[in-house]
Simulated scan of single mutants.
Amino acid sequence: MKEISTIELQSLLEENKELNMVDVREAAEVAEGKIPGAVNIPLGLLEFRMHELNKSKEYVMICRSGGRSAQAAEFLKNQGFKVINMTGGMLAWQGETE
C-alpha cells in the first residue's frame, strides 16, 4: 500500500498541488477539525458512497491514527481505485485544520 506522511502531505498542500483527500472518520470527529479540502466519507459508508469517487484520480485516505484509513485504502484498492494512506492520521497532523 502506498503511504504518505503528514509532513509530506502538508508540503504538497503548501505547494498548491491538487490533491483528492477523503477523511474516513465519523462526522463528530471531523467536526473537531479536518484538513482543508478533505471530503468526509465515514468508513462505514464508504462501500455505499464509493460511486462519488473517480477511478482515474488518486485519493489520500485520512483518519484519526492511520488504521481506518489503511482499511479504507485497502478496500478501495481492491475496487480498482488509486489510493495513498496518510500515516499517523490526524493525531500526527501539524498543519491547518478547518
Rank of each mutant, 00 (worst) to 15 (best):
M1Q: 11
M1I: 10
K2R: 13
E3M: 03
I4G: 01
T6F: 04
I7P: 01
I7R: 10
E8L: 13
L9D: 02
L12E: 12
L12W: 08
E14T: 13
E14S: 13
E14W: 08
N16D: 15
N16C: 09
E18F: 10
L19C: 11
E26Q: 14
E26T: 13
A27W: 13
E29S: 08
V30Y: 00
V30R: 00
A31M: 12
A31W: 09
E32P: 02
G33P: 02
G33V: 08
G37W: 04
G37Y: 02
G37S: 06
G37Q: 07
G37R: 03
A38N: 03
N40M: 07
I41W: 00
P42S: 15
P42L: 13
G44C: 13
G44K: 12
L45A: 15
L45M: 15
L46W: 00
E47W: 03
E47A: 14
R49I: 11
M50P: 02
L53H: 05
N54M: 10
N54Y: 11
K55S: 05
S56H: 10
S56L: 11
S56Y: 10
K57P: 04
E58G: 11
E58F: 05
Y59R: 01
M61V: 06
I62N: 00
I62F: 03
I62V: 13
C63I: 04
G66D: 05
G66V: 02
R68Y: 02
S69I: 02
S69T: 08
Q71S: 14
A72P: 00
A72M: 01
A73R: 04
A73V: 09
A73E: 12
A73D: 08
A73T: 12
L76C: 03
L76A: 02
L76Y: 01
N78H: 00
K82E: 10
K82C: 07
K82R: 14
V83H: 01
V83L: 01
V83A: 01
I84V: 09
T87K: 11
T87M: 06
G88M: 06
M90Q: 02
L91P: 06
A92C: 06
W93Q: 12
Q94E: 13
E96M: 08
T97G: 02
T97R: 10
E98A: 11
E98F: 07
